[in-house]
Design a protein around this nucleic acid. Sequence first.
DNA 1: ATGAAAGCGCTAACAA
DNA 2: TTGTTAGCGCTTTCAT
Lengths: 356, 356
Amino acid sequence: MTEGAGPRAGGMREVARAAGVSVSTVANVLSRPGIVAPGTRQRVEQAIQHVGYVPSGPARQLRGLPSPLVGSVTLDLANPFFAELNRGIEDRLAEAGCLVLAGSTDLRPDREQQLLDLLRQQAVRGIVVAPIRPDLTILLKLRQAGTPVVLVEHPRGDTDLCSVAVDDVLGGRLAAEHLIALGHRRIAYLGGVVESGTVTRRREGARQAMIAAGLDPDAALIDLRMPIHPPPLIDAAMLAVQRLLTADPPPTAVLCLNDTAAIGVLQGLAAAGVRVPRDISVVGYDDLRFAALLAPPLTTVSQPAYRLGWTAADLLLAEKEPDHAHREIMFQPTLVVRSSTAPPSVVSRAPRPGSA
Amino acid sequence: MTEGAGPRAGGMREVARAAGVSVSTVANVLSRPGIVAPGTRQRVEQAIQHVGYVPSGPARQLRGLPSPLVGSVTLDLANPFFAELNRGIEDRLAEAGCLVLAGSTDLRPDREQQLLDLLRQQAVRGIVVAPIRPDLTILLKLRQAGTPVVLVEHPRGDTDLCSVAVDDVLGGRLAAEHLIALGHRRIAYLGGVVESGTVTRRREGARQAMIAAGLDPDAALIDLRMPIHPPPLIDAAMLAVQRLLTADPPPTAVLCLNDTAAIGVLQGLAAAGVRVPRDISVVGYDDLRFAALLAPPLTTVSQPAYRLGWTAADLLLAEKEPDHAHREIMFQPTLVVRSSTAPPSVVSRAPRPGSA
DNA sequence: ATGAAAGCGCTAACAA
DNA sequence: TTGTTAGCGCTTTCAT
């Protein structure tokens, strides 16, 4: 009757009965094999095999043991950048026998809240989260309620949390400096109507670069924003090209919020007969694997997605240690210059830099 | 003392105490609000708010309620195709208040087994799995032990399981027919030393196309396999270009196992100074978003990753219904012709087809 | 309309 | 070395 594994296998008790011992002995065989007599142990192990016993995670957790589940709340599972990041999380967790519970927020606060609630109910061992908004009180409350939280793509500020991030301001600065050095004086920044903090910070970095170069950022940096939500990002970016081209005076370069948006821009530009980089320069962000193979090869800012995730999971697992101090780990982005950027073909109509 | 949410909030009992009722009344407020007196209900609701009560998933599951967790076991979370597929799963599950527990197998049987075991222990509501090997006994056993299983990217055969797949043989056939129509008579198929069933089936489809065209598949189809595991796929593909070019007689076209591998091939070919499609034609598989923007735009076979995942999750959730019949859903791939394919520049040295 | 009580599968004292 | 026992937080009869 207990052959194979019936629909409702009966747990440790059934094993105990089959082996002629008590449940605690079975439990001991599982958690402290050393203390059980060899003969007994063997009998129990056979019984386990025989009845097809599988320990119940929920029951263990109820007893207070740590859950092997870790939540990951990011912008979008399907976005190659976050997919890579999640893979990093998964790999680090696998080393500890843990599993990722992944969710996408799509930048919607309600969805973020829902995911966080669901994860909390599951009593997960911790949560890696790329928060939508700068206000971290919900997360702090979560942490305080006993769920370790580590931030990704977000500075921890003065909060009592670990965080792993990339210096976005620097990334934006690097991209803009490159363009400025090439001679561009009117640069569009293609962001979103609603966007993540990372994107906002990159734009800010670009702005800083202009100021440092003696340019008036209000004139030199064109703030272009597209509605990201309903249409896939790539299509939204394609559509935004229209506004990019009709801006007056027209920019000679465009900084895209990420490589995916850059694909859309490239596509839109090609459709409009505008040549890159001859007529306009395009810069992406993320340096996804396909960036080098686009037409033209994309100049972009590289950031270590996989390592970001791996490190975040590592930090999260470390929260259990008694002497844990919260840390902020910051990676440096690097500019990868390829062929989608070049000096502007016509002299910019924008005011020349005062100095520098 | 019970302000906000202390590190170890006390569960329903604490709520009951705060509201001056019994735990079962609290339970009733949560699951059958209708049966509780309005006044009492309100008091309980306030108490819930006050103590920051969060129901315990593990406890519920232990009581036998269905878990909101669903496992997803695929080849690689970071692969854009599976990332998209997982997003489809996530979205369908979200509608039902469920969460994805995602894992990557990297085609390693041991890892697949480990993931399956872990998921089983968590008593998940079901598992969506892209099985590594054609032998489904482990999955059938799982199903039989009470965990619903739906297959993706795998035909269900005569098993008692639901499945969602794309007609891979047709996909391979479409790609090869296109090349054959263009005049190619020596075509390489770039697969893996170890590869998923999908890839094997696509190669088989290509073979069928050759036979149908009166070609000798053993001469016309060059079986090129790269070690996929340690190096990232894209690099492995780049390396494989060497062998592609030195094959004798040389193929005039190459069918890649997927778009990512195609990127590597394109890159390797560019590095070797071989022009596409003039010197050699390249075909990808998946039609990822960047395919249209590569240099040159990639001819590839398109398949609906997101819908695959969405549908699989939908089927899984439906397993709970009393009158559930297992179904096999099959999507049709489509060929997307772009500019990476063209007629061969030199007359093939391979034997001409006997007839059409 | 509400409460008392049993028990899901497991772990960890403690007893024997 | 092994067994007994008491819950973990919750749902669910079955009283009241």
